[in-house]
Simulated scan of single mutants.
Amino acid sequence: MKDLQIRMPFIEGTIPNKLETMMGVKNLYHKDFMIGDPKPANFIKKATGEVAPIDFGLVFLKGNIRDIHMEVKREIVKDYIKGGHSFIPQEIKKEYTTAIFSLYPASAQIT
């Protein structure tokens, strides 16, 4: 069973600010990944200036949306509505938001 574990190396750094977090979201997006709960606490800014994700709980491949369990989809949309949307760079916001809301059709009813 040990081989089935995900292990992440320790990464030194600081919590990024809003603009740096947006840069991290954009970098993920250009690598075909999306994050449902983008916020500074889910990223780390390395000494090199690179902003890397450290919480992969709601990270998913853009092209793999159909394979996500419905409850996970609901959580992604819920976190996005709660505030994640404010960390999406303007140049990808329309496409990003459309993809997020396509995950859970009843998203307008989530509070």
Rank of each mutant, 00 (worst) to 15 (best):
M70E: 14
V77S: 04
D67T: 14
A108K: 09
D67G: 14
A108L: 12
K46H: 04
E75Q: 13
T21C: 02
M22D: 04
R7V: 06
G24D: 02
P105A: 07
M1W: 10
I100Y: 02
I6F: 01
S107F: 12
D37W: 04
V25R: 07
F33N: 07
M34S: 05
K73E: 00
T98W: 11
L4F: 06
K26G: 02
E75P: 09
Q90M: 13
M1H: 11
K73M: 00
E20C: 10
N27P: 10
G57S: 06
K94I: 15
T111W: 03
T111H: 11
F43E: 00
Y104G: 07
L61Y: 09
L4R: 12
F101N: 12
L28I: 08
L61H: 13
R74F: 00
D55N: 05
Q90S: 14
K2I: 09
A106M: 12
E71K: 15
Q5Y: 10
F56K: 07
L61S: 12
P38G: 08
I81T: 05
Y80W: 08
Q109W: 10
I35D: 01
E50A: 05
N64M: 04
R74C: 00
E95R: 07
R74K: 15
K2Y: 11
I81Q: 07
T21G: 03
A99M: 10
A52E: 08
S102N: 13
M70W: 15
K62W: 04
M8G: 02
H30P: 12
E95Y: 12
V72D: 00
R66S: 11
Y29N: 02
P16S: 02
G49C: 03
F10H: 12
K45A: 01
K93C: 01
G63Y: 12
V77T: 06
T48L: 00
I76S: 00
Y29T: 06
P89K: 11
K31I: 06
N27Q: 13
N42R: 03
K39Q: 04
E71N: 08
M8D: 08
T111S: 09
K73I: 00
F101L: 13
V77M: 00
G83K: 02
A108Y: 11
I35V: 10
I92Y: 04
N17V: 11
G63T: 09
D79R: 15
S102F: 05
M8A: 03
N27D: 11
V59E: 00
G57D: 10
A41S: 14
V72P: 07
H69R: 14
M22V: 14
P53L: 11
T111V: 10
F33H: 11
D37A: 07
P89H: 09
D55C: 01
Q90E: 10
G36N: 06
F33V: 07
L19H: 14
P16N: 05
E20V: 15
P53H: 06
D37K: 09
A99G: 03
I15F: 04
P38Y: 07
S86V: 12
P89L: 06
T21R: 03
V77I: 02
N27V: 14
M34L: 12
K94Q: 12
K2V: 10
A52L: 13
V51K: 00
N42D: 02
V51N: 02
M70D: 14
P53E: 03
D79I: 01
E12C: 10
P9C: 06
L103Y: 05
G49V: 01
E75M: 05
M8N: 08
E12N: 14
K93W: 01
I11P: 05
M70Q: 15
F10W: 09
L103V: 13
